[in-house]
């Protein structure tokens, strides 16, 4: 039962326009930038003598009674765009640092997401049993999800500290060895996002009608078989959904790298997003950064397309 009155557009259009202005326009602009060489420089446009004022706004006078003056240099930020065709994109394909960052991001995404989903499933199984204080324990598990990522990065810096940190007894060079640094980043992501997978799986598990499980339990004695043949197939749509959400999110890896390792040691943990960010905002190479961002967008879009079909079904 749905209404069709034209008033519906008054309800919907403001939000649609807002998203168009703040998402579609920047994306279009980004595409424009990606096919240009963008140069930003500060140009001096003039100099001017102005009187020096004291706190009350009165001119400060020299001993001879003349107002003290200072020179103000007028600067203007000039941005020039030169059409570059596909130069920026081709450059990304040849850039060795980009290749490294792609490999790092791929390892991160694969390892982190796989472990989070499996651990999330295991924890959901555990919390779906008759355990004590489930609401309290569940609330504790929610905490990491909403912890400020930047703060999380610094927290783990203190935890991975190799001299006197709480994990020092393991003797692992957490942040100083290239491979371990990447492992550390993966570990932080696992800490923050396993609870998300766990929560969603637990909700899905509790949504399965008890009778269904009891019925299936009549046929088998082994809980493993029950899970493999009944529960996991029932959870499958949710698992795929969580997988896609985590994939889309993991590709953006930025905050933890920015705080925990700053891409180091060397470039061992420089994720793709972090590299695009530094190219754009540390080196002011906006055209190249936009091209890199666009390539990432294409990869994410492929994930989104799969995601889109799944989601559409959820909103029937």
């Amino acid at each position: 039962m749905r209404w069709t009155s034209r008033i519906k557009f008054v309800f919907l259009l403001p939000a649609v326009l807002w998203v168009l202005v703040f998402t579609i326009f920047p994306l279009g602009y980004s595409l424009f930038l990606s096919v240009h060489h963008v140069e930003r420089e500060v140009v001096v446009t003039g100099r001017e003598q102005v009187p020096v004022l004291n706190k009350d706004g009165q001119p400060v006078l020299k001993k001879n009674g003349e107002p003290r003056t200072k020179t103000v240099v007028k600067r203007e930020l000039s941005t020039t765009f030169t059409f570059a065709g596909l130069d920026n994109f081709l450059r990304a394909f040849r850039d060795a640092e980009v290749a490294t960052s792609v490999r790092i991001t791929a390892i991160f995404v694969g390892a982190a997401v796989a472990i989070e989903i499996m651990l999330g499933l295991a924890l959901a199984w555990l919390f779906n049993r008759r355990i004590v204080a489930r609401p309290v324990l569940r609330s504790i598990m929610i905490l990491p999800i909403f912890a400020t990522p930047i703060a999380v990065g610094y927290l783990f810096f203190t935890i991975f500290y190799e001299v006197g940190g709480p994990l020092a007894f393991l003797g692992v060079p957490w942040l100083s060895h290239p491979d371990w640094a990447l492992a550390s980043i993966i570990l932080v992501d696992i800490w923050q996002w396993t609870p998300f997978c766990f929560l969603v799986f637990l909700a899905a598990l509790q949504g399965i009608p008890d009778e269904l499980i009891e019925c299936a339990a009549l046929d088998t004695n082994s809980e493993w078989d029950l899970w493999r043949e009944v529960v996991l197939p029932l959870l499958q749509p949710v698992i795929i959904l969580v997988l896609l959400l985590r994939l889309a999110e993991a590709f953006k890896l930025f905050d933890i790298v920015a705080t925990l390792t700053k891409g180091g040691p060397g470039i061992a943990t420089q994720s793709y997003s972090y590299l695009a960010f530094t190219r754009g905002f540390k080196l002011n190479d906006f055209g190249y950064a936009s091209a890199m961002a666009f390539l990432l967008l294409i990869v994410v879009m492929i994930v989104v397309t799969a995601f889109f079909k799944r989601l559409r079904r959820a909103y029937e």
């Binding site: 209404w3 309800f11 919907l12 590709f251 997003s273 906006f286």
Partner: peptide, 29 residues
């Protein structure tokens, strides 16, 4: 309300699909 040109569920998904955009893509603009 029922939307005809673009079905409701597609509009909903369109709204949430921008959650998935990598922020670096819109940061420079």
């Amino acid at each position: 309300f029922k939307f005809f040109l673009i079905p409701n569920k597609d509009l909903t998904v369109w709204f949430l699909s921008q959650r998935i955009l990598p922020p670096v893509a819109t940061a420079v603009p």
